[in-house]
């Protein structure tokens, strides 16, 4: 991949984050019920959606590997799972901080929160499971089957608030400036999510390729 493009990509992502911060803290008005803590929402929702996106990439990688048995799919699933764990941790952290201010507690065992924690743990276990298997083929096969099952939790997280009534908000009424801010925040968060998956994937692919070239030499 072109080095200039990579540098430009990360500069645009960083600039979008900086502009997003200005939007969230200066442009968007203060929410009347919850006050300033509602500003976490502009980060919390896009990160949550991108966690689902990363989980979907893991699922696609798992299906691809079980279908074609090519390591490229497994490396893609592994890279996306790592990003899903990082993004999932941010969803939990920002949710807890928001909850502490809005509800007065850091954590409550509501369906959405419980399924979100379960999702994060499922992908942590996926990475731990993979690291415990030495054989590359066995690791890819076991990991792929596990990833298919783990993905079942994604719709549970998404639909939990619609199925079971709970404390977590299902829909929020936003003013136009708030809508603009929220819509913009999807840009830096998605750029970061895609950039991290690609970077981790390239790192994983670089090592075996280098080993193969060395053995050929």
């Amino acid at each position: 991949m072109n080095r200039t493009f990579i540098i430009l990509y990360w500069l645009v992502t960083a600039a979008a984050f900086a502009f997003g911060l200005w939007l969230a803290f200066a442009y968007a008005p203060r929410e009347q019920t919850m006050g300033d803590v509602q500003r976490i929402f502009y980060l919390h929702l896009p990160v949550a959606i991108n966690t689902f996106l990363a989980c979907l990439v893991v699922f696609i990688g798992a299906v691809g590997y079980l279908w074609q048995r090519r390591s490229v799919w497994d490396d893609l699933a592994d890279a996306a799972a790592r990003v899903a764990v990082a993004f999932g941790a941010v969803v939990l952290l920002t949710g807890m901080i928001w909850g502490h201010s809005a509800w007065g507690v850091w954590w409550t065992w509501s369906p959405r929160l419980t399924f979100s924690l379960a999702l994060w743990l499922l992908y942590v276990v996926y990475l731990v499971l993979r690291s415990s298997i030495e054989s590359r083929q066995k690791r890819a096969t076991v990991g792929s089957v596990y990833a298919l099952i783990a993905f079942l939790d994604v719709p549970l997280v998404y639909f939990s608030t619609r199925i079971i009534p709970e404390i977590h908000p299902t829909s929020v009424t936003l003013e136009p400036q708030m809508k603009t801010t929220l819509a913009f925040w999807f840009l830096p968060v998605t750029l970061l999510c895609v950039g991290l998956i690609v970077a981790r994937f390239r790192l994983a692919r670089g090592v075996p390729q280098a080993l193969a070239k060395r053995s050929e030499a």
Partner: peptide, 26 residues
Amino acid sequence: MSPLQHAMLGYAAAAVCLWGYALWIW
């Protein structure tokens, strides 16, 4: 801690986790 400080803490935690992970990969 005020609501604004809570919001800033959330963004700081996200920055540490996500950009920290990006730095680690690099």
